[in-house]
Design a protein around this nucleic acid. Structure first.
Lengths: 130, 130
DNA sequence: TTCCTTGCAAATCGTTTGCATAATG
DNA sequence: CATTATGCAAACGATTTGCAAGGAA
């Protein structure tokens, strides 16, 4: 399958690169629509799936049942605010040691882990205090 | 909201307690149906949601888009096999230290984390070797 | 008798897909 | 020209919900 260039795909990836809050497909759709009023949700989904398949973006699942997307593909951890439901990046070293830790008492083979943290984000923490 | 007793709910919880493989709602449905042939999927979902709301069971999301349920409510970690897609428990001490680790470089407040490990389960590991 | 719970079916939500047409190389 | 990408709408799978009837306290 040889990729052909597409303005819609560029716009989708371009939009994702401007955001660090890991938008959902719906958010991507409503923003890209400003530039391509006729773009369909299906095209957005198709391209998000394609881009994550080829490793240009990340599909993130943080337990809310909705896929989020991230243009930062380097491994990093995510944080979910339990008040505003926002998703953000965490500046945190790899925790890969926990793989060996888990492997020690496990009969199969552990290849990796998925971790996200939850709590109150900086903004919601400030609002709670005031 | 005062709970009333229900045989269907008992059967659902009872079935979950016999299993350590974290069945999906569909699996619960097909098994409880042996005892209650007329039970509906809606009732199964309603009770699974109710039971997890009151903390009698756990709703587990391991990235496959399908909810799994677990009658063991004590904190523990899960493992997902990337070959057979099975979900199992891991015998692993709490990793709560990673919360403070993450909190150190974070401006909000971290209340906890969700982690699951993936790889090949004992059974699939054996099959691969043979 | 109150009101929670059920079965059934329809509805919802996020996501995927079939198809004819448009755009790319 | 060959083939990928699009828009549209229909289909999908998991889950939720409205409603009238059944069951528990």
């Amino acid at each position: 399958m040889i990729l052909k260039h597409s303005k819609q795909r560029d716009a989708i990836k371009g939009f994702l690169m401007t955001r660090k809050d890991h938008p959902t497909a719906d958010v991507v759709y409503s923003h890209v629509r400003k530039e391509f009023p006729n773009i369909s949700l299906g095209t957005v989904y198709r391209n998000l799936t394609l881009l994550s398949d080829i490793g240009e973006i990340l599909r993130i699942r943080v337990g809310d049942g909705i896929d989020h997307f991230d243009a930062t593909v380097e491994p990093h951890y995510h944080f979910v605010c339990t008040k505003c439901n926002g998703v953000s990046d965490l500046n945190l070293d790899s925790l890969n040691q926990i793989n060996e830790f888990a492997d020690a008492s496990f009969d199969g083979h552990i290849a990796g882990h998925v971790t996200y943290f939850y709590g109150t984000c900086p903004d919601c923490t400030k609002k709670t205090l005031s």
